[in-house]
């Protein structure tokens, strides 16, 4: 009886692990999409209101993602203090500090850190051109991620279930 309960528990745990990995992969994809959306939103908000970046980030941009909201507010506050020579540096430094919280791959993180260049240009046109460049790169990364995600989900799911089964067999 005990062996049966133990086996069920191990199988449930491996199923749970597979589910959590799957959710994590989905979340990662969602966050990339959210970031892309956010860059567009910031740009259009700047373009519409013609307010400085700091004000747009502090008062006009809302995201559902708490981590991102925190990062944007921090950038806005640091810009207000005027302690950096250029705005791009502030954007990059803050995103670098919060790299772990965002859970992005290094290539994606670097791209987001550089994307700040699209908001501190001399004109709206310049910002738009730079932004479209980063969005293209991000789209490419998202496409790669989408393709890899399905394969990864299958592989992780199989590994989790199989290792659960192996463990059950070993323990029996």
């Amino acid at each position: 009886m005990l062996k049966l309960v133990g086996s069920i528990l191990i199988l449930l745990a491996s199923g749970g692990l597979s589910y959590s990995i799957r959710t994590e992969l989905n979340e990662h994809q969602k966050r990339l999409f959210l970031l892309r959306n956010l860059l567009t939103k910031i740009f259009w908000e700047m373009n519409y209101s013609m307010r400085p970046v700091e004000q747009v980030l502090l008062y006009q941009i809302e995201t559902q993602d708490e981590d991102l909201t925190k990062i944007l507010k921090e950038i806005g506050e640091r810009l207000m203090k005027k302690e950096a020579k250029c705005g791009e540096d502030v954007w990059r430094e803050v995103f670098q500090t919060h790299r772990k919280e965002l859970g992005l791959k290094s290539e994606e993180s670097e791209l987001i850190e550089q994307a700040g260049n699209a908001f501190f240009g001399k004109s709206v046109e310049e910002n738009q051109k730079v932004l479209s460049l980063y969005q293209e790169k991000l789209d490419f990364l998202m496409e790669v991620e989408r393709r890899e995600r399905r394969e990864k989900q299958k592989v992780y799911q199989t590994i989790c279930i199989m290792s659960g089964l192996v463990l059950v067999i070993l323990l029996i």
């Binding site: 307010r51 400085p52 004000q55 250029c86 705005g87 001399k122 709206v124 310049e126």
Partner: peptide, 16 residues
């Protein structure tokens, strides 16, 4: 150049 950033709040685009 540095002053230009501070005066415009790092946002020259907003002051066209």
């Amino acid at each position: 150049l540095e002053m230009q950033n501070y005066i415009s709040n790092y946002s020259l685009y907003a002051w066209q």
